[in-house]
Design a protein around this nucleic acid. Structure first.
Lengths: 121, 121
DNA sequence: TCTATTGGTATGGTTTTTCGTACCAGATAC
DNA sequence: GTATCTGGTACGAAAAACCATACCAATAGA
């Protein structure tokens, strides 16, 4: 599959079976990677402000719990979307930021925001 | 907020607090609306082919169960993304298709596919 | 009469997510 | 000596999601 594809080309080809039939669909695995109550929201917060400390993220995402935020961040780090930087200070300070891979999701949020501005009252 | 916004404008403004602070964020509610294991996949299948019968969808989304597919479709219909057309035949025939509101999510899938083509091996 | 068909529903059980609470280190300020 | 700060962890409980199975209507065809 091409590395780049215009939107018009996508519109044409999405109607054929090309994208899914070859078991190499570029959409389904991404959808699955971003599943979960918090992952997209965390990435979006980090799009808005980066880096962010654990406590700042937690405040923005209230009512998220420590456990949920920790787990989601670990998975996002494991997927290479988020970078964790730990400073050995007391009290501890840990900063989270998006990697390039994570920042490259910005067009997705742009598309979502366009839809939202059209349809959300 | 503007009804339309270029990507460059989005890049600039997403870093300010404008998008979220006023309680009228065009991203967060959309993310929440599309949560769940199957919703995005169903919409994506309907982007590829529409209309589709219940049984066809079920086959494409194997191993989804009747219950899950029914529930997800009901919620998508409730959100106005999917249209359900029932034909009173025996055996019954029901066709699902995207509404305009649903089709307008296509740019989101395009953005996702661009990311996927870059990062999925 | 028996079977197959489709698009579901109903029921109950299992598994996965999510939540609430308590707890920790180790320095600093009181 | 005690409370405070941060970024977590550990544990069990609750909630939500998910699943398997059985079942239904109503007609057509064998």
């Amino acid at each position: 599959m091409n590395q780049s594809m215009t939107y018009e080309e996508f519109q044409r080809r999405v109607s054929s079976v090309i994208l899914t039939e070859n078991g190499n669909c570029p959409v389904t695995p991404v959808i699955q990677m971003l599943q979960g109550k918090w992952k997209l929201q965390i990435i979006y917060e980090l799009c808005i402000q980066s880096p962010m400390r654990f406590g700042e993220l937690k405040k923005m995402l209230t009512p998220i719990t420590n456990t949920m935020l920790t787990n989601a961040l670990k998975e996002l780090e494991g997927d290479g979307l988020v970078h964790r930087e730990q400073y050995n200070e007391i009290p501890p300070r840990v900063e989270y930021s998006l990697t390039e891979k994570g920042r490259d999701l910005l067009p997705v949020f742009y598309a979502i925001s366009q839809w939202g501005m059209k349809y959300i009252p």
